[in-house]
Design a protein around this nucleic acid. Structure first.
Length: 405
RNA sequence: AGUCCCGUUAAGUCUGCGA
């Protein structure tokens, strides 16, 4: 038994979770420690479903969990589809065994609710905490950011500092994208100042988000300066810089960096390619966008929904119906036909390429329609001189409860 | 027989209509 215990823990840690499971299943008496090793092992390798079902079995057997097990289980809930309901049950269990006041467990709860989009419950846990720490505050901020509650995020950021807690590198990397998206240079600079004072500048995450904040606020020089000063750059740092130039239409600079990153030993990923494609497509270089779309596949990178919705406007711009149809074929083959954004991009492409019929077909078959999808279809009708049909669709849209913008 | 390590928050970058 002792040997088996050792074996399971070491296998689980090495990531050979299935081997560990085989031994585990044969054990007659399984201690909490063993359950934790197994569940933790599954979580670490991203098999959240298995982690959760193992946890349920454990509860059925009447094994009492401890705090760290709850942290593992909550992490699984935070990542797993449909984890919110399970997470709530786990929360009840935590309350029943009296662990809700534990900071680590509380933080994991906030994180879980935040990631699953349940801001109310995240807040409830947070407000009940006697001594929220930096992680608690940061998790709460991240939850607000994810829900688009930017004012609330700023409020929390200020309050945490007023209460004497210091924001760390994680806190600022959660806040900077908010400044970037709001183009709030003033607050972005304030946070940058704080970063310099706190000596977080060399953190890759921090530097990349500072870079992106300046770029989105239109200060390309500052962005480039931050990029050049980085002691370490990873694929995200390069992507942020490439995307900046690409989006501005500075193709030469973008291409240069795209090339240089490879010389630096960083292989472009799907995001790097997408940034390049979008840059060309949005700046009148439709041909190049299409070329890049082919090249990325030759390079072994599978285009995703974003790649497709980036390249389709290039077909629209070139009125390249045939190319557009080819990409439509790819949408099916790659399993992206249920993506709302891809569907709108297809509708727009067909509309602009003169095939209203195809545009309608895609729109009607779409599994989901948001305001932009409706707008696109209405625009296509209007463009083809069907004003009445456009108006009719507009009313239909309002009947679905969507608001015009 | 594990108590070192690992395990809670950020990971930052790309996308559709129109303006």
């Amino acid at each position: 038994v002792v040997l088996h215990n050792r074996k399971i823990t070491s296998l689980a840690r090495e990531g050979r979770i299935e081997d560990a499971r085989q031994v585990f299943d044969k054990m007659p008496k399984r201690t909490l420690f063993l359950w934790s090793s197994m569940i933790g092992g599954y979580v670490r390798q991203g098999n959240y479903g298995e982690a959760l079902s193992l946890y349920e079995v454990m509860e059925e057997k009447g094994v009492e969990p401890d705090r760290s097990l709850f942290v593992w289980v909550l992490k699984a809930c935070s990542q797993h589809g449909g984890g919110l309901e399970k997470g709530k049950k786990v929360h009840d269990r935590i309350v029943s065994v009296g662990f809700e006041s534990d900071v680590l467990v509380g933080n994991a709860l906030i994180d879980m609710y935040g990631k699953r989009g349940d801001l109310k419950n995240a807040r409830l846990v947070f407000d009940k905490m006697a001594q929220p720490d930096v992680v608690s505050w940061t998790s709460m901020i991240a939850a607000c950011v994810q829900k688009g509650q930017t004012g609330e995020a700023f409020g929390l950021f200020r309050r945490m500092q007023a209460e004497g807690l210091k924001a760390n590198s994680v806190t600022v990397t959660s806040m900077l994208p908010v400044c970037a998206n709001l183009r709030d240079l003033k607050r972005g600079k304030e946070i940058h100042g704080y970063i310099i004072r706190g000596d977080f500048e060399d953190n890759v995450f921090v530097a990349s988000s500072v870079l992106d904040m300046y770029a989105k606020c239109g200060h390309l020089k500052n962005a480039r300066q931050v990029f050049d000063k980085m002691p370490h750059r990873d694929v995200v740092s390069w992507n942020a810089m490439v995307a900046t130039y690409a989006q501005k239409g500075w193709h030469k600079e973008a291409q240069e960096l795209f090339h240089q990153m490879q010389l630096d030993g960083i292989e472009p990923d799907v995001i790097s390619w997408n940034a390049m494609i979008a840059g060309c497509a949005q700046n009148g270089q439709g041909d190049d966008a299409l070329k890049l779309f082919c090249q990325m596949q030759q390079g072994g990178i599978r285009p995703n929904a974003i790649s497709i919705s980036s390249v389709l406007p290039a077909c629209a711009h070139l009125a390249a119906l045939q190319k557009g149809k080819e990409i439509h074929g790819y949408v099916f083959r790659s399993g992206n036909k249920d993506d709302v954004i891809v569907a709108s991009a297809l509708v727009a492409m067909y509309g602009k390429c003169g095939s209203l019929k195809d545009a309608c077909r895609v729109f009607e078959k779409a599994s989901e329609r948001d305001t932009i999808a409706w707008n696109t279809m209405i625009g296509a009708y209007a463009m083809h001189g069907h004003g009445e049909k456009a108006l009719q669709l507009f009313y239909e849209m309002e009947l679905t409860g969507l608001k015009a913008n």
